[in-house]
Design a binder for these strands. Sequence first.
DNA 1: AGAAGGTATGTCAGAACTGACATATTGTCA
DNA 2: TGACAATATGTCAGTTCTGACATACCTTCT
Lengths: 95, 95
Amino acid sequence: MKKLKNGWVEGSVQNFLELSNEDMEYIEMRLALCRLLKEERRKQRLTQTQTAARLHTSQSRIAKMEKGDPTVSVDLLLQALFRLGVKRKELAAAI
Amino acid sequence: MKKLKNGWVEGSVQNFLELSNEDMEYIEMRLALCRLLKEERRKQRLTQTQTAARLHTSQSRIAKMEKGDPTVSVDLLLQALFRLGVKRKELAAAI
DNA sequence: AGAAGGTATGTCAGAACTGACATATTGTCA
DNA sequence: TGACAATATGTCAGTTCTGACATACCTTCT
């Protein structure tokens, strides 16, 4: 997966970076998971710090997860979502 | 996420390992993706070696992906699936 | 303006993942 | 059975991810 030195691709530079449609799908799916995480946290009226405590991680990582920071894996996003109580059905809908 | 030294949990040792239901969901989802990868490869009548070439990786990694080896991340599984042409809709159905 | 709560960004040591390679096992033919 | 293709398993150096910490950036108060 092509990645920039310091972040994901943004906007519509797909051609310039020669990103395949498949890679675009992957990135879009990541972003969907990020959005879902933020929504779920807000739905439960938690701050990032509270969420971090609940997930045994740090506030900064929660912020990065929600922002789609490239240093956050899909694995981490999925584990976070499940631990917040999101069900696979909801995931499937969000993807 | 609790992991054994050399592999995932198997069978029904959930209690012994104190795996939460959320973690179980995560693991089950992983396995669903593994199965989907194998199915898709077979549907396209590819060997693991051919698939490896197409995805720019090695046969052993394909084998590990399909076997649910713990050294394989969901990120890798998803990228592989997308690059084999699986669509998000199909993913959602498999999850 | 200043303080406080919440969110974002940068960095880093330790942990986990990846591709590659070697080798072993399984399957399938003649 | 033997030979060959396919799949599985073990290992490792290089890369990437993670939690933690510091710190910066907002908002929203008074």
